[in-house]
Design a protein around this nucleic acid. Structure first.
Length: 801
DNA sequence: TATGATATCCTTTTT
DNA sequence: GGATATCATA
């Protein structure tokens, strides 16, 4: 393709960003501004200028993005593009690590631990160290380790840092440093890397082996990074190191869409790119080709409330479009009915395609109510949940078999499958093997040999030895099969001879059937991988002898997510349900964002800090800008939370949308002083003098709720109070069909402010606050330790003093 | 050792 | 409320 053809149809800013391919570039790409197009065109243009595809490294965050880019480039310049090194940070560097694992002291066929493996390992360590997993919660420890790794803090550095030590003491996890040390030690002993290691170890590789770094620096003359605002420290340093030599780095991103700080992403990376590369050219893509003017302007009006941002002004030259609608329902269930009903009407009146609509929410658990409603109406939907496929027990078991065969040192895999399916090897035996392994500093796999020879000829012991030996033989013989069989055949062999597939096939329960289906899905993916590799060999992109290897497949699989799997189903005409996070980068004609309430969106935790709120605001911005022609937001008065009803306030973000873009039948205007304020750090309690419609509504509920308490209604028989005015949707046209919903009852609070209580864990404390909730009371208690805790009256086991 | 009962997290978001 | 983890029991 000729240069002009490649550049055809780009606007001046886009074109400039493409043509500057030899300079370090920062491309600030607003939502819907043709970011992917610019990135792919830039690469295609480079190829057309004679740049070798081998010298290009393009990093993305999702496999999907990588695949999409590859396809688009291929369409422009043809097969040449296949040699570009393009993929997610994790997949590219896992490959590089595999080539260099030995110099880091890892086996070439190292295992990748998924988060669950990490968590299990942490549990074991905590137990071995004689610590309570009450204080040392695996999830918390895991996330702290992850944070340390993302910031390139080694266990050694951690333990020497007094700030961390103090912090850990305050968090009541003084032993954390030692856990971290042990965790890394054991991962290495197991020949395993967790997700964060893929980046951390790459950094070690480049730091400690300049000759290796130089090799990659020379090879990758052009480094391109997509979604740069989402890079964490480890990724940032890797990119810096690689690009140091040629400095032909190009990063693309949108600071307004930085939504992964919880995962270590540093918005600073994009904000200070120009400081890192002073000679960098900056390009701003500000024209939005996706959404209507109304949507773009409304989104701008929200994001304007953020203080930390790069200057840009997004605009749309598209249709003005409909106003953003805001719906309100009483409960989450009604919200679902309202949204789904409206969605159905919209789709029917519009294109008639379900896939034009998406419902977005802040947290995954909000999907339930929506699913019910969609099912009831027989509307097809697809729900994207985080890696659910690998959460299935049978899938994990199958993968563990494969993992153990490839890497016998993988203790987590060993423990998982030695008695799965049940072969009469109990916890005692496993604990014994583990003990020996520990004592001799070897893997459990090796420890088995010792155990077998040590055991004496007692009848019971003999039986155990026989069973364990059988298992060992099974793995050994499967491992031999690996040499002779193709990927798929080998997988089938493992599935059958391990007993996993037969185990589920024998049962007729729906669960077992789905387990069989999942196992088949695993095998299927092996088959596909096989075919893909064969095609590559045919095309000469791959050496003849490099047939599809199981560890390669496994590595690619471990780094896949649910989003990637569902890919091939995209032709299906379904409504999409997913979190706002997973929606980033996607677009739909009609977008519904449910649960726009304070403490949910923005989330409760985010409300604790300004940065937290700003990130939620960006998330809200992402949600809004997914819509092409119509955005609909909704909130509720009450929502089920932790099993009981809680009152909700409309999200502060709803108030932040400039009202000229909003259509809403209830008052969204806060009292004057409130409205103009940009960001308030903590709680914003609206003054009771200027009562809004919502406040009035809430008060109305409070009255009812009190009446009910007085009447001592039976919990089960109480139905939702009928509103005095018919509840209406935004246009005031239809009355919302209501079904009976959860009940609202309460007893008088058992505790009062000033009283002293004792908690089994926290000790004695004074009640500072008792806030009535729908069915319970929220208590704020200051304990003797000085710590203030918020507890639920019914849940906390308190004794009055 | 396997099953059912109870306890305990949870509610951020995921490569 | 619900899913998962741990515990108690046969």
């Amino acid at each position: 393709m000729a240069n002009e053809d490649i550049l055809k149809g780009l606007n001046p800013a886009q074109r400039a960003a493409v043509e500057a391919y030899n300079e370090p570039s920062l491309i600030i790409a607003g939502a819907g501004s043709g970011k992917t197009r610019v990135l792919t065109t830039r690469i295609a243009y480079m190829l057309a200028q004679g740049v070798s595809p081998h010298s290009i490294l393009a990093l993305t965050f999702t496999n999907k993005a990588a695949r999409e880019m590859r396809e688009r480039i291929e369409n422009m310049v043809g097969a040449n593009s296949r040699y570009i090194c393009m993929g997610t940070f994790h997949s590219i560097f896992s490959r590089i690590l595999r080539e260099n694992a030995e110099v880091l002291g890892y086996p070439k066929e190292y295992t990748i631990y998924e988060p669950n493996d990490s968590k299990n390992l942490i549990k074991t360590i905590v137990k071995d160290m004689g610590l309570s997993d009450d204080k040392y919660k695996p999830n918390f420890i895991a996330s702290r380790i992850s944070m340390a790794k993302n910031n390139l803090i080694t266990p050694g550095a951690y333990i020497q840092n007094s700030t961390f030590a103090t912090e850990d003491r305050q968090l009541q996890i003084p032993e954390f440093g030692n856990i971290y040390i042990e965790y890394c030690k054991r991962c290495k002993a197991n020949g395993a890397m967790d997700f964060d290691d893929l980046l951390l170890q790459t950094n070690f590789l480049f730091r400690d082996h300049p000759e290796i770094l130089a090799k990659y620096q020379e090879r990758f003359q052009y480094v391109l990074v997509d979604e740069y605002q989402d890079t964490n420290n480890a990724q940032y340093i890797i990119v810096r190191r690689l690009a140091q030599y040629h400095s032909r780095i190009c990063v693309v991103g949108d600071d307004a869409q930085s939504i992964y700080s919880f995962r270590g992403a540093k918005i600073e990376n994009i904000l200070s790119f120009q400081r890192d590369y002073p000679q960098a050219k900056v390009f701003k893509l500000e024209q939005n080709y996706r959404s209507t003017q109304t949507i773009v302007d409304a989104a701008n009006s929200v994001i304007d409330h953020n203080s930390r941002k790069l200057k840009k002004r997004c605009y749309s030259e598209g249709a003005k479009g409909e106003k953003i609608r805001i719906f309100k329902a009483y409960t989450d269930r009604e919200e679902a009915d309202l949204i789904v009903g409206d969605l159905r009407d919209r789709v029917r009146e519009g294109s008639g395609n379900w896939k034009d609509a998406a419902i977005l929410y802040r947290t995954n658990n909000q999907s339930q109510a929506l699913e019910n409603s969609l099912r009831q109406r027989g509307i097809p939907y697809i729900i994207y949940k985080g890696s659910s496929f690998y959460d299935h027990k049978e899938v994990k078991d199958m993968l563990s078999y494969l993992r153990l065969i490839i890497n016998p040192r993988d203790d987590e895999a060993f423990k998982r499958i030695i008695n799965t399916p049940a072969r009469g090897i109990g916890d005692t035996t496993i604990a014994r093997i583990e003990g020996i392994a520990h004592e001799q500093q070897v893997s459990m796999w090796e420890a088995v040999d010792t155990m077998v020879t040590r055991t004496h000829a007692d009848a019971v012991e003999k039986a155990i030895v026989r069973k364990v030996t059988e298992f060992v033989e099974l793995i050994r013989s499967l491992s031999l099969e690996r040499e002779h069989k193709g990927l798929y055949d080998f997988g089938m062999e493992v599935a059958v001879r391990s007993g996993l597939l037969p185990f589920y096939r024998e049962q007729s329960s729906p669960e077992a059937q789905s387990a069989v289906a999942n196992l088949e899905e695993v095998l299927n993916s092996m088959q596909m991988f096989n075919e893909q590799v064969e095609a590559e060999i045919r095309n000469g992109e791959r050496e003849e002898h490099q047939t599809a290897s199981i560890d390669e497949w496994l590595q690619s699989l471990m780094l896949l997510t649910d989003m990637d799997n569902k890919e091939n189903e995209e032709n299906d005409d379904r409504v999409t349900l997913m979190t706002v996070h997973s929606a980033k980068g996607l677009e739909y004609e009609y977008v519904y964002v449910v649960g726009c309430e304070d403490n949910l969106f923005p989330s409760q935790r985010a409300l604790e800090s300004v940065e937290g709120i700003e990130e939620e605001r960006r998330l809200f911005y992402v949600a809004l800008t997914r819509a092409k022609s119509l955005a609909t937001l909704s909130c509720v008065d009450m929502r089920f939370k932790w099993g009981n009803m809680e009152f909700s306030k409309p999200s502060r973000f709803l108030y932040e949308i400039d009202e000229q873009y909003v259509e809403c039948d209830f008052s969204l205007r806060k009292p004057r002083g409130e409205q103009s304020r940009t960001t308030s750090t903590t709680t914003t309690i609206s003054s009771s003098k200027n009562e809004t419609a919502i406040d009035a509504l809430r008060r109305r509920f409070d009255v009812r709720y009190q009446q009910k308490t007085e009447n001592r209604f039976n919990r089960e028989s109480v139905s939702r109070p009928q509103p005095t005015t018919p509840q209406r949707d935004i246009s005031g046209m239809r009355r919302v069909t209501t079904s009976t919903v959860g009940t609202v009852t309460s007893e008088p609070c058992a505790y009062s402010v000033g009283e002293w209580v004792e908690h089994p864990k926290f000790g004695k404390g004074e009640i500072l606050q008792a806030v009535p909730l729908a069915t319970d009371h929220k208590l704020v208690i200051r304990f003797a330790s000085g710590e203030e805790k918020t507890l639920l009256s019914k849940v906390a086991k308190l004794t009055k003093l």
